[in-house]
Design a protein around this nucleic acid. Structure first.
Lengths: 175, 175
DNA sequence: ATAATATCGTTTGGGCCCCAACGAAATCAA
DNA sequence: TTGATTTCGTTGGGGCCCAAACGATATTAT
């Protein structure tokens, strides 16, 4: 298939950078629409992350990863490190450091079950639950602001596209 | 407006985590569609970044940020630190470290113009240009794989949605 | 029973990331 | 002209990030 050529006649116009890229890459056989899609994912994620950290999380002593870990524990309940890392989208090694920070803030606690002493079960403390009850509504307000420019159709298109990308990467990694 | 309610009757079905979140948050007044959109942006960006670093960039001694900086220099040409950081989506302080790494690999070089000795102009070396000519086609192939699951309509919906989010954050930060 | 293997979470090393503080250089004011 | 202000890029501190190596524990094979 040649998605590049087909897509080129399609919707969103090119930004200044994208025009410069096309000119610079004239001689190479490049699928520019893919570049546009992927680089916009990174731009949006970067901007959203920084916005949410500055406008919301900073006031509650939370990093973005720390918040994500608390969120998973809040929604899914206590669980072992391995699964928690996967749900939060970070590696086990990274999670160890994040948990040390959260434990220092007394927002989570680690326990080792007697049935299998290799495991570590992480759970929210009372303070951790309280913190999430305070911070999540604020966080959600900011999320709503960020997506306020989208109508229903655009929202659905965004989510569908992102899920498609995720599924594709998943499939590529199960090679 | 009540985007939450309107959107809820709409397209993409809820995943397991999203159902758990809805149940957990029943009593609070939360705009769940916003959470769905934002968290999928992070998930997709995370997965794409890790995939591209592992499958492509690692073989060329490049981090994702290092590659992005080289890309900007390749497309837009030599430029001062301030603008380069902005284009690459990182702070000036972070860029200093990234440039140190890239300079160690002899892929970029820094010069101070006589007209204004506060500035630093960064430009690609010959080796840097050669590296990009090698790595970008591979990178682009991986980008194409990642987005291969989208048809034209889905691609356009994704890009339009991401641009909408970016514009909204931009507007919010110019408060 | 005991040795080999597998699976935990942690540690380590190098790099990225932000913010705030800083010195150097240029510009503006008095 | 010389002091105040602005604008550079860099530095320092704390935290996040991954991959690989590691010790501890559990399981499997002999």
């Amino acid at each position: 298939m040649n998605a590049a050529r087909a897509r080129k006649q399609r919707l969103p116009a090119l930004t200044r950078t994208e025009v410069a890229a096309r000119d610079r890459l004239g001689e190479l056989d490049i699928d520019l629409p893919s570049t546009t899609a992927v680089s916009n994912i990174f731009r949006a994620a970067n901007a959203a992350r920084n916005y949410l950290e500055r406008k919301v999380l900073r006031d509650y002593e939370l990093s973005f990863s720390g918040f994500t870990v608390l969120w998973v524990l809040w929604i899914d309940g206590p669980q072992e490190t391995r699964r928690l890392a996967e749900e939060a989208g970070i590696t086990k090694g990274t999670l160890t450091g994040v948990l040390k920070t959260l434990e220092g803030l007394e927002l989570v606690r680690r326990t080792t079950p007697d049935e299998d002493r290799r495991l570590t079960i992480v759970h929210l403390t009372t303070r951790g639950k309280r913190r999430m009850q305070q911070v999540f509504p604020k966080f959600n307000q900011a999320e709503a602001q960020i997506t306020a420019g989208l109508n229903n159709r655009e929202w659905a298109g965004l989510v569908t596209g992102l899920r498609g990308v995720l599924a594709q990467i998943q499939a590529l990694e199960d090679d």
